[in-house]
Every structure is written in C-alpha cells, then in structure tokens.
C-alpha cells in the first residue's frame, strides 16, 4: 500500500512528553505509514474433500462413542463391557512359574538384594552363592520369606545385622514358591525348586507367628525337615 501523501495529524499523547512530541510523531508516523490495512476476510469456499473428511470423522466419532461407552455407568471401567467385570477363575497352570518368579523377584526382592543377587555390602546379604540359599532343604527359606529375618547373622562368613520384612500378607503361595525357585536357580545357584504345596504347609504351620520375624538362631534351632 502506498503511504498517504500528507502525514497524519498529531494524536493525543501524554502531556509531559510534549517536548519530544515532534520526534515521536515522526517516528510513529513512519511506523504506521508502512503498516498494511487491517486484516479482512476472503470468501474462498470450503473444499469438498474437507467436508467429506469431516463427515467421515464425525461418523467414526459416533461409532466409537456408541461402542465404547461402558453403558455410561459410574462403576464400569472397562470400555469394552457395559456391566461389572466377571470374576474369572484362573485356569490352573496358566501362570508360567519361571516368569512369575523373576517378576516377583524384581518387584519385591531386587530393591534390597539387587537385580544381580549380590546384595549390598554391609546392608543386604547376597543371594547369589549364599550358603543359606544353596541348601538341600527349602523349609527355612520359605520361613524367611513368609516372616522375614532380623538380627545378627552370617552369610558366607560375612556378618550382617539388619532386617528383612515379612511377606506373609503380601504375596501368594504361588509367588513364594516361584520366587524361591528363581532365587535357587539363578546367578549360578543350583538348588532344587520349591513346590507350591510345601509353601502352603509351612504357612499353616507358622500361622501363630503372624508377622513376627525370625532370627538366625531361631531358624537354626528349627530342623530343616519341618
């Protein structure tokens, strides 16, 4: 756009800036002069393909909302159903014990005994190569996991004096068996696995201990066969 031939008249400005007014006007005029017109709207039509695309989108939206609305109920969280979930009894043998063992270990034991099974010196004893883990019987290990362990003890000749929490209320018999089997057969450990039924038996036997942890001495006083 061409600048207008004559400069615009002086606009109102702050009075205390009067002395500068002239310069200011010159500048502002220059700025305003190069300014283009205020924006306007053109009238190009909307392309047909766009309308088609939007129609398709709306159809999809309607379908999706109709299909996955959970019946608009407050307690339906699964978008694929419209009623309360049905408790599915787990088919027997559906969990892979190896996988369950490793996952339980990562979630429950690795924070202390570490992913490597090496523990942390002075704090958490190692499970890899441990003389508590690599034993013929497994009753003692089941006891440790169910009720935890506290007080002075030795692992491979190294002293530890710390506590491990009880897991009785947190993990199932399946998980105890799986995690101990995993522990006994990883990082070079080569001890027999732990059957689920034995865990059940020991859990019942030690019921009255509730959540009270063992001490190393108490465990040693309990014969492995029980």
């Amino acid at each position: 756009m061409n600048p207008p031939s004559n400069p615009p008249p002086a606009p109102k400005l702050d009075p205390h800036e009067d002395h500068e007014l002239h310069d200011v006007m010159q500048i502002h005029t220059a700025i305003l002069r190069r300014e283009k017109a205020e924006p306007q709207e053109g009238l190009e039509p909307m392309p047909i393909w766009l309308a088609a695309l939007f129609g398709a989108l709306l159809l999809w939206g309607g379908y999706y909302l109709g299909r996955y609305n959970g019946g608009f109920k407050a307690l339906v969280f699964d978008e694929k159903s419209s009623g309360l979930p049905i408790m599915a009894a787990k088919p027997p043998g559906s969990v892979d014990m190896v996988v369950l063992g490793k996952r339980t270990y990562t979630a429950m034991c690795a924070p202390c005994h570490q992913e490597t099974g090496l523990g942390l010196p002075g704090q958490f004893p190692p499970l890899a190569g441990s003389d508590w883990v690599n034993t013929a019987g497994h009753a003692r290990l089941v006891r440790i996991v169910l009720n935890g362990l506290t007080g002075p003890m030795e692992v491979n000749g190294q002293p530890f004096n710390n506590s491990m929490p009880p897991w009785r209320d947190s993990i199932t018999d399946e998980q105890v068996a799986a995690v101990l089997t995993y522990v006994r057969q990883s990082w070079g450990n080569k001890a027999p696995g732990v059957p689920i039924d034995d865990v059940k038996v020991i859990r019942d036997k030690t019921k009255e201990r509730a959540n009270q942890p063992w001490t190393a001495d108490l465990l040693k006083a309990t014969p492995e066969s029980e």
Binding site: G42, E44, P45
Partner: peptide
C-alpha cells in the same frame, strides 16, 4: 494478513 497485506483466505 496484516503483515503480508492480503485478506485471510476464507471466512467460511
């Protein structure tokens, strides 16, 4: 539109 000095493409 202000800087390039032409109307916006389409009102619709």
């Amino acid at each position: 539109p202000k800087v390039i000095g032409r109307p916006i493409h389409s009102y619709f």
